[in-house]
C-alpha cells in the first residue's frame, strides 16, 4: 500500500512538471529566462534523505527512465544521473547534520549539479549552443530560484509524508 502511495505521488510530480512547463513556458517571468521545474528530482532527493538510499536510487532510475522516454527521447541521461545523484546525496547526508534547513540546501545544491551536468551533456551532443555565462544567467539562476521556491513550499509536507510511510525500515 505504501509503495502504491509513493508511486502515485511520484507520478503526480512527473506529470505536474510537464503541465507546469506548458503553462509557464511563455513570458510569465521575462521572455529570455528559462525556468526548468525539477520537482520530480527534488522528490527523489527527499526520498533518499528521509526514506532510504535503496528506495531513492530505485525511484530515481525508474522515474529517470520514464522522463527520458516521454520527454527528451534521448535515453539514458536522466536514468543514469538520478540514481547517481541520489547515491551521492545519501553519502553526503552521513557527513552533514540532519536538519531540514541543511536538507533543503543540499537538495538545491544537487539540483544545480543536475542542471549543469545536463547542460554539459547537451553541449557534447550538440543540442545546445550557449556559453556557460549565458547558461548561468538565463537558465541556471532562474531555475534555481524556481526550485528553491518549490523546496521551501514542499519540504515540510514531503518530509512528513515520507517519514509517515516509514521507509526507514528498509535501510541496510
Amino acid at each position: 500500500m505504501r509503495y502504491f502511495i509513493l508511486s502515485f505521488i511520484a507520478l503526480v510530480f512527473f506529470v505536474f512538471e510537464s503541465i507546469f512547463a506548458q503553462m509557464f513556458a511563455g513570458d510569465a517571468f521575462g521572455a529570455d529566462k528559462i525556468l526548468v521545474p525539477h520537482f520530480m528530482m527534488i522528490f527523489v532527493f527527499f526520498l533518499t534523505m528521509y526514506g532510504s538510499r535503496k528506495m531513492g536510487m530505485l525511484y530515481g532510475a525508474i522515474l529517470g527512465l520514464t522522463y527520458d522516454v516521454v520527454y527528451t527521447e534521448i535515453l539514458g541521461i536522466y536514468m543514469f544521473l538520478l540514481p547517481f545523484l541520489a547515491y551521492l546525496i545519501s553519502k553526503s547526508m552521513k557527513i552533514l547534520q540532519n536538519n531540514i534547513l541543511v536538507a533543503c540546501l543540499t537538495a538545491l545544491l544537487f539540483t544545480a549539479v543536475l542542471e549543469v551536468v545536463i547542460f554539459q551533456m547537451n553541449i557534447i551532443l550538440s543540442f545546445a549552443d550557449m556559453g556557460f555565462g549565458e547558461f548561468a544567467e538565463r537558465r541556471l539562476i532562474p531555475t534555481l530560484l524556481l526550485n528553491l521556491a518549490f523546496i521551501i513550499i514542499s519540504c515540510y509536507p514531503l518530509k512528513r509524508m515520507i517519514e509517515m510511510l516509514d521507509l526507514q525500515g528498509e535501510t541496510e
Binding site: 506529470v15 510537464s18 512547463a21 526548468v36 527521447e73 534521448i74 537558465r139
Partner: peptide
C-alpha cells in the same frame, strides 16, 4: 490539444 511540454527545455517538444 497540447497535453504536455518537455520540462527540461533543451529539446523543445510538445506532447
Amino acid at each position: 490539444t497540447v497535453i504536455g511540454r518537455n520540462p527540461d527545455r533543451w529539446h523543445e517538444m510538445l506532447t
